[in-house]
């Protein structure tokens, strides 16, 4: 952790919102990416990332400085996204929480560019088929280079549970990988947008 970052955290704990905004600026990408990989949709990822920072903001006093700040944030994001996915079975719309800026802009934004390039691989599609917890383990392992111990701590699991989840998820991905490849993809890919991934 850099001294500047530690300073921002300290100031944020003391109530400085600008310092916290600096932390948001610094960590928006890893947090957003995790939410995007977990939820598979740009708008939901935006909301989840904002919610993650709000939860971190509220729980800042409980942050343990021994742990990297980004790991702590990712842990909040992962738990939130897993909960969201579980709740999805019971659709419940909280109007109060809808974002004010919800108009998709026509300009190609980076998130869209990345996801379109990404969707040429099958991974994004395949990830969707895993259970939320398995998906989180895979994302943390491959996008964030987390060790099994790190994943266990982040997802509040035991290391052996992480091992078996990773094994199951890898197997599932590998098995479905071929199924996807064998399908003719030409027609489907043409109308793929981030919201359908």
């Amino acid at each position: 952790m850099s001294t500047l970052e530690a300073e921002w955290i300290q100031e944020a704990i003391q109530g400085n919102d600008d310092s916290f905004a600096c932390l948001v600026e610094l960590y928006q990408r890893p947090v957003y990416n995790l939410c995007y990989r977990m939820l598979g949709n740009a708008q939901e990822a935006e909301d989840a990332a904002q919610e993650t920072f709000w939860r971190a903001y509220q729980a800042l006093r409980r942050y343990d400085p021994q742990r990297p700040f980004v790991t702590w944030l990712l842990s909040i994001a992962a738990h939130y996204c897993i909960d969201q996915q579980r709740k999805r079975r019971v659709p419940l719309l909280d109007l109060d929480l809808l974002p004010e800026e919800d108009i998709p802009d026509a300009a190609p934004d980076p998130a869209r560019v990345v996801s379109e390039r990404d969707s040429q691989g099958q991974i994004h599609q395949l990830l969707k088929k895993l259970s939320p917890l398995d998906r989180a383990a895979i994302i943390l392992r491959y996008w964030y280079d987390f060790s099994e111990e790190d994943i266990a701590r982040t997802l509040s699991l035991t290391v052996s549970a992480v091992k078996s989840r990773l094994f199951r998820a890898r197997r599932e991905l590998a098995e479905k990988y071929q199924i996807e490849v064998e399908k003719p993809l030409v027609g489907r890919r043409a109308n793929e947008t981030p919201s359908t991934i």
Partner: peptide
């Protein structure tokens, strides 16, 4: 094949102005 794609791991980036929206 899956692993190769996993290791490409493109990072999705939020829409510009994320921090402003946070504020």
């Amino acid at each position: 094949g899956t692993q190769t794609e996993l290791q490409e791991r493109a990072m999705a980036v939020p829409r510009a102005g994320f921090t402003q929206r946070w504020k």
